[in-house]
Nucleic acid binder design. Structure first.
Length: 511
RNA sequence: GGAGCGUUCGUCUAACGGUUAGGACGCCAGGUUUUCAUCCUGGUAAUACGGGUUCGAUUCCCGUACGCUCUACCA
């Protein structure tokens, strides 16, 4: 590679960023960083009718959350700005004019209504060589007539004039040689009536001006690639064209087809990276972040959707991904998204992440549940105790709320059937034991000691530990779950332990 | 309809002509956990179909089927 690698992610700001979009960002980022190149964010906001306020900010926020920060962007600036296409409007016109001068493009005066009528009249209508002469444009019309129309500011677009009987091809990095017959390609609009470029013109002009070396985009763009290749040929030369890589799609889990926002709603899992609230409808679509995914896990699972390094390794840090990434190991076929596996990735990352780093991420969920955390160190300790049973961040609340407040519901139904006087007496004496410890000034006792003392008492009462452990757990936790009983006692300390036993004893005798 | 792209366990994928077609998720069974989860062990399950090429095809070629994407003055 003779020039520095420069890649770009070019979304249009119309809503939340879905899995496929973020994965495109990720592959861009990994490729750029692997080659010590630059990653650019360019906002493609040429369609003013689809502009959604807040969407651009959302994209920036999402990239920041994922840790995929662009080197150049509307926010960060850079030497090739502006990075919003709406602010580059003037640049595109000159290239469209050049194309007209060279005879590679023409003016078209057909109204949308004209075209609709044509589409109805002719099956499989395409604005192309086959029908050009039947329409109102600077090829079919006389020069004088065109001059008048232009002089009168008649609304018009500029279309590419696709040549006849040529083969246009590109060497896609992922798919290899792909070729098209120009007779099958239609004369796409390059410059709209409002003076804004369409994607087709803008992507070519901006990729050139921004010195993009590798252009990644979703597979859905492949059918329009010949238009882009032609534009490169006419405007800047094929030798300057970036290498294309059309990425496979991310598919819905059931059936076939591209994963959509609706699939997530239907099947109950997020599709967007972060919560997205549509300002028009004021409805919020849930995101992976808010569902409780770690960004590292999210990035990891996305990377594995369509790429692998050829080994059995599945858990990767971003650094490892950068080091190992290569386009020749990206798949051609689409990948169905599996939410179960996504959760597994997150569980792995929760186990892998230090308790101290988890604490601030988990804390908001406790606040939401109105559970106060007085001691940050205590939270860190509890996280260590329960992290391996949590797949998603919010589960920390359900798995550990009893460490912070006494359980509100107690599953006495699981104790009652086998409850008897002997057990009652046992727990009464256990309380006495703990109270006596407290009177010596002890707040808590190590779990190992607690266990020994507990078993001594069990033996004294001629009972079996097995039949006492479950009741004890339920008294403390409220249900049949959670870490080791004595670790819980150690954590919540003697005073709370005693209170909880006594409360439950009352509950059991009142029934 | 047309064009382009794709196709290995249910899912994500490995095997770049020679393997009992491997791993992971899920699921099932057993063990550990005197609970649940974790963890460990084992099991389940795939080369879309038909022709070639070859001593030998998951792998290369052709065809068929199926699927997907595009077919807007949207990206």
């Amino acid at each position: 590679m003779d020039s520095k690698v420069r890649v770009r992610f070019a979304p249009s700001p119309t809503g939340g960023l879905h899995l496929g979009g973020v994965r495109t960002v990720l592959f861009n980022y990994l490729f750029a960083k692997h080659h010590k190149g630059e990653f650019i964010l360019r906002i493609e906001d040429t369609d003013q009718t689809r502009f959604v306020p807040g969407a651009e900010q959302y994209i920036q926020d999402t990239l920041a959350w994922c840790g995929l920060t662009p080197d150049e962007s509307p926010l960060h600036g850079g030497p090739y700005g502006p990075y919003r296409q709406s602010e580059r409007k003037a640049m595109y016109k000159q290239y469209a004019d050049t194309l007209i001068e060279k005879g590679y493009a023409y003016y078209a005066f057909d109204t949308p209504e004209d075209l609709d009528a044509k589409r109805k009249e002719i099956p499989n209508f395409q604005y192309s060589r086959a029908h050009r002469m039947e329409l109102k444009n600077s090829i079919s019309l006389g020069a004088d007539e065109v001059a008048v129309l232009l002089k009168n500011n008649t609304p018009h677009v500029i279309r590419i004039k696709v040549p006849e009987n040529e083969e246009v091809s590109l060497d896609d990095v992922i798919r290899g040689h792909v070729s098209f017959d120009t007779n099958m390609v239609d004369d796409k609009v390059l410059l709209k009536a409002d003076g804004m470029p369409t994607y087709h013109l803008a992507v070519v002009v901006d990729d050139y001006l921004m010195k993009i070396t590798h252009a990644f985009r979703g597979e859905e763009w492949l059918p329009s690639a010949p238009v882009h290749v032609l534009l490169w040929k006419y405007l800047f030369g094929l030798d300057k064209m970036p290498k294309w890589a059309h990425l496979p799609l991310i598919l819905k889990p059931d059936g076939n087809g591209k994963l959509s926002k609706r699939d997530g709603e239907r099947l109950g899992f997020p599709v967007f990276a972060m919560d997205w609230t549509d300002p028009n409808t004021n409805t919020t679509t849930i995101g992976f972040k808010e569902r409780g995914f770690l960004p590292a896990a999210f990035v990891n699972l996305l990377a594995m959707l369509g790429w692998n390094d050829g080994t059995d390794k599945e858990i990767y840090t971003i650094e490892e991904l950068i080091a190992g990434f290569s386009l020749d190991r990206v798949h051609k076929g689409g990948a169905k998204f599996d939410y179960e596996k996504a959760k597994w990735f997150n569980a792995e990352w929760i186990k892998k992440t230090e308790n101290e780093k988890l604490a601030p991420l988990v804390r908001p969920y406790f606040e939401e549940a109105k559970i106060e955390i007085h001691n940050p160190n205590y939270l860190v300790k509890i996280i260590g105790l329960v992290k391996e049973r949590c797949h998603l961040l919010p589960e920390f609340v359900a798995q550990s709320s009893f460490f912070f407040t006494a359980p509100t519901t107690i599953d006495t139904a699981s104790i009652a059937p086998k409850w008897d006087e002997k057990k009652y007496l046992f727990f009464e004496e256990l309380v006495k034991l703990y109270v006596s410890k407290m009177e010596t000034g002890l707040l808590t006792i190590p779990a190992s000691t607690l266990e020994i003392e507990f078993k001594e008492l069990v033996a004294k009462h001629e009972l079996k530990a097995g039949e006492l452990m479950l009741p004890f757990r339920i008294m403390l936790v409220g249900g049949k779950f959670g870490p080791g009983v004595f670790e819980i006692v150690e954590a919540i300390e003697l005073k709370d332990t005693v209170t909880r036993i006594e409360k439950c004893l009352q509950l059991l005798s009142s029934n």
